[in-house]
Design a protein around this nucleic acid. Structure first.
Lengths: 298, 298
DNA sequence: TAAATTATCTGACTATAGTCAGATAATGGA
DNA sequence: TCCATTATCTGACTATAGTCAGATAATTTA
């Protein structure tokens, strides 16, 4: 990574947090302590339960309790036990609280207006496009890829979502039992590898490697959640699997895929996989690919 | 301004301040109160004088004094009277303080690395380009344009910088006395108007309107600081002057310019000014322009 | 059903951040 | 030279943010 690039990122961080940060100190203009204002805003027009509030704002339970009590004393919020779980309390804003919420919301709106208002229409469009790009790529950079046990909860979430998607997309539907197996124990080192991609702790993709011979491996279970597509996650999963395969001494990787999965096919072609004759009898496979001469990256 | 655009800006603000903000809480990881860490970092490797520190961090003088004392007590900084001004104190970091500074700097560097590291080279380049664009446009949106008295300090700063630049750029040099006059009193309503553009309080551009007849006006003193070019400031100044001229009932605007000022000429042409015969004997003018049929904008 | 866990609350703290009113000394301008 | 201003410092405050150790009641797990 170049020095110059890092410098630019740091500059951006400073500039943006200063420019937006200062304006975002909307809460401070409310004439109300930051903590209280944050809680009030987070309760929102629809109300919220205290457990969620605590998680979202990551506050100490005692502290939050006190803040809520203070809002209640000021007639801004009321609380009652939640229907489902008698331990949890459900907080709602009173009419007075809603009024305050709207004032805070208006403040945030004003910030947005004050950023856009001085610009001409063309500049405005460029700013919005660049903002979207930055946001998207920061999301991409927050994705972490890690090997996990294929039996772990996160892995299971991914595999189930993967099967559900295949069921929807294949013209014939999809029954895991009829497909070529990749049992959990086949995807644990040294027989294989199972990777999960996570965004903010939530699993959003997976990919697996199954070792089939001294030099031969197979790619399985490549999937990315629809909400996280376009972030380059599949490419990173594939890179990591190939890297691991190369380190394990494998020289050839194979995989099969269905005609309806066109993004996947494009990914494989882009990465140097070439179509070969069927190497298995998977009823769901329409294309078989192979890549030879894997190389370890630095 | 569209609802959708505002929503997108708010989303960006939340997402970016969260993502970067959390990481930027570098200071908090230093095991040192935020205030102290900020001051220590701001003193920097080269030292700083207390007056500047106070301005940069906008801290109460008493508070800052106490923070500095605390840093001194911990053996992180030392201070002595400044050479130039006996009232001001000059603070320097001790070797121990420099070590802490480096740790903070490394933290900020790590943030930048952690943002870029997970991305591929192409994504990295796109992120940096988008960051640059956002930064540039946020800077543009922070520029405020206001009418001021042409005799005010900010106006003078601009005019002097403008003359200095003409002196440099014109092949013949530039002597204000030989140029066609625009005395301060001619640029005050209702005889005229003088606008200053400011970025973070600093004047970075100006433009003036001189009323020459019942329907005729002239554009003068169009200038933007080199450091603030590319932000669309000249366009905004021109828009504001035309708007004011239209409201004052003027139907024709004229202006003269020198052949070396090509950006200016492009600006005028882009805005519908057409070249006309010389309407004055300004020795520094090579081109004369005119725009008819001004219209008030909404 | 007993035991462990979870969600909230209360009381008793501490640390940080920040404000305000002088006091003092150096500087700059009339 | 005198006076207003400026930069810093000290003392005396206050408010906010946050932590921690139980207590209590509801829920889940064994």
């Amino acid at each position: 990574m170049e020095e110059k690039q890092l410098k630019q990122v740091r500059h951006f961080n400073r500039a943006v947090t200063r420019r937006i940060g200062v304006l975002t100190d909307n809460y401070l203009g409310s004439g109300r302590p930051l903590g209280e204002a944050r809680v009030l805003f987070e309760i929102g027009m629809d109300g919220a339960n205290v457990r969620d509030l605590r998680a979202r704002l990551s506050l100490d339970s005692g502290y939050l309790s006190r803040l809520l009590r203070s809002l209640e004393r000021q007639g801004l919020a009321t609380s009652q036990p939640d229907g489902d779980d008698g331990r949890v309390r459900w907080v709602t804003l009173t009419p007075k609280g809603r009024k305050e919420w709207k004032a805070l919301d208006r403040g945030a709106q004003d910030v947005a207006v004050s950023l856009l208002a001085p610009l001409g229409e063309r500049q405005r469009e460029r700013l919005l496009a660049a903002m979207e790009e930055v946001e998207r790529l920061l999301r991409a950079s927050a994705v972490a890829i890690e090997p996990v046990d294929p039996g772990s909860a996160d892995a299971q979430v991914c595999i189930e979502a993967y099967f559900r998607e295949l069921e929807e997309r294949f013209e014939t539907g999809f029954d895991p039992a009829r497909s070529i197996s990749a049992a959990p124990e086949e995807l644990v080192p040294p027989a294989g590898l199972f990777l999960v991609a996570r965004l903010d702790g939530q699993p959003v993709g997976c990919g697996a490697l199954k070792v089939k011979g001294r030099r031969l491996g197979e790619i399985k279970r490549m999937w990315v959640a629809p909400s996280a597509r376009g972030l380059g996650i599949a490419q990173r999963l594939l890179d990591a699997l190939e890297q691991h395969a190369a380190e394990a001494g494998l020289g050839i990787l194979q995989l099969d895929t269905n005609r309806t999965l066109s993004e996947a096919r494009a990914l494989y072609v882009r990465n140097g996989y070439v179509e070969i004759a069927a190497y298995n009898t998977n009823p769901y496979a329409d294309h078989w690919f192979e890549k030879r001469g894997l190389r370890r990256r630095k």
